[in-house]
Design a protein around this nucleic acid. Structure first.
Lengths: 110, 110
DNA sequence: CCTAAATATCCCTTTACAGGAATATTCACC
DNA sequence: GGTGAATATTCCTGTAAAGGGATATTTAGG
């Protein structure tokens, strides 16, 4: 899985930006206002989100409209797919593992 | 969404540990070997994963068996749910937003 | 008890990154 | 062309976190 996406989302302000943009696209200024960020910090966070492919930015006059890109979310969803069996089926291979460890011990006896 | 989980997964080695543990539980030493990590670094990464709730550790003699916990993955899945409409339905409210911006302009005219 | 294996912790150094403040850039509009 | 609004960029500083190395801790086994 792409850790760039993860680190982009690991910063609380950026996570909030993403959750804001879930509703609808917003300009840089609107984002800064909503989250009580200074404009330069908002711009910096948006750049990180953009480089991670999480948002795309469209210039309209002297504003930039930011909107989410579906791709990284799709990828996250696909990635999660391989973990879903953990809770969808019974999944606790710990017992098996303990047995396996034990048999390794037996092997060493020889 | 919990950014602790995100930052835990943002570190490439920890992401690899998680993907390793998807297969089956493993001891600290096995993880270190698999990923060519020195044992102290492996322990440190595992502590971070543990504090984020991503793994649980069970002591068996002088080994620690690490296994994934489903909860954070479930939460991630739930969180993703609210983004799924982006690709499952047609979702491009940019046009709407541009119209909205325009009408704000018109308001200013007065 | 003593030893070796498995693991955790500590200290140190380096690096990445977030925030603050100032400044540069771009654009619409008069 | 000059002005102000929206945004980007730069520089600086502090801090958190990762890796390396050494050491402490726990446990089984002789």
């Amino acid at each position: 899985m792409n850790t760039n996406v993860m680190s982009a989302l690991a910063e609380p302000n950026r996570m909030q930006i993403v959750e804001l943009l879930r509703e609808n696209p917003l300009t840089v200024g609107e984002i800064a206002d909503s989250l009580q960020l200074r404009q330069p910090q908002a711009s910096k966070h948006l750049r990180v989100l953009s480089e991670a492919g999480l948002i795309e930015v469209q210039a309209v006059a002297n504003r930039r409209i930011c909107k989410l890109r579906p791709d990284p979310f799709k990828e996250l969803d696909t990635w999660l797919e391989s973990y879903r069996h953990m809770w969808e089926e019974r999944y606790d291979r710990l017992d098996d593992y303990l047995l396996e460890l034990q048999s390794q011990e037996l092997d060493k006896e020889k």
